[in-house]
Design a protein around this nucleic acid. Structure first.
Lengths: 108, 108
DNA sequence: AATTAATACATAGACAGGCGATGCATAATA
DNA sequence: TATTATGCATCGCCTGTCTATGTATTAATT
């Protein structure tokens, strides 16, 4: 079941950084993985992901590298920078704090 | 410590509805209560709350009623409508689903 | 007595991220 | 051969939040 909400705002960045912390990935792959892992609760589209990736790269949190798959399709693989690792940890912690705070108000 | 984040988006409505589910409150009071209950992790201002209250009222989820305090200050008290109660439950459930989904991705 | 802070409402404009739509190109499938 | 899936990209809209500003009254401070 899809989540149709403004709440999506702000969580794309920590999620992407977290995924890239495990392994290098390309954009289209990230979309598929996120949608699958959330049972399509998240239904990310290109218009959500690519601008976000570009922002992260412009901020020096991730780096890209073109690589051609066996299929012949060129893919842009992203990796986390050292700065990105620190920012990932910070953003995950921020989410943790934030969600706990909301829970205090909603489940008091 | 303040949360400075885009994540704030979308949570104001369920929080307000939840608070009003307990008792009628006026705007300024809601601001104080939220900031206090979150130890100032949330730092709501008028510019955040009042437009939100007006949206909720326009949607028929809450109703307002002027009342003058002993201090002499006029206050606009808000109460939850029947429609608002249903919407509150839905939004709280939505948050629950949403936050669990984010947690799956961030703490896998 | 006069100034400042707190209370209590309100709105206007800027900002920015998510989303839908669209585009291009190639490979795989029906 | 036509359609779907892959894989990149961007433009413009939408909308909730934030900063700033405004008004008015009461309380507190100097």
């Amino acid at each position: 079941m899809a989540i149709n909400s403004d709440m999506m705002r702000g969580v794309a960045e920590p999620i992407i950084l977290k995924l890239l912390n495990y392994k290098k990935m390309y954009g289209y792959e990230i979309i598929k993985v996120v949608n699958e892992k959330t049972d399509n609760a998240f239904q990310w589209k290109e218009g959500t992901l690519y601008p976000c990736l570009h922002r992260l790269e412009a901020s020096g949190l991730i780096e890209s590298e073109w690589q051609t798959a066996e299929s012949g399709k060129p893919r842009k693989y992203y990796t986390l920078t050292k700065k990105g690792m620190a920012e990932m940890a910070a953003k995950v912690e921020e989410w943790s704090h934030f969600s706990k705070t909301v829970n205090v108000l909603l489940f008091a």
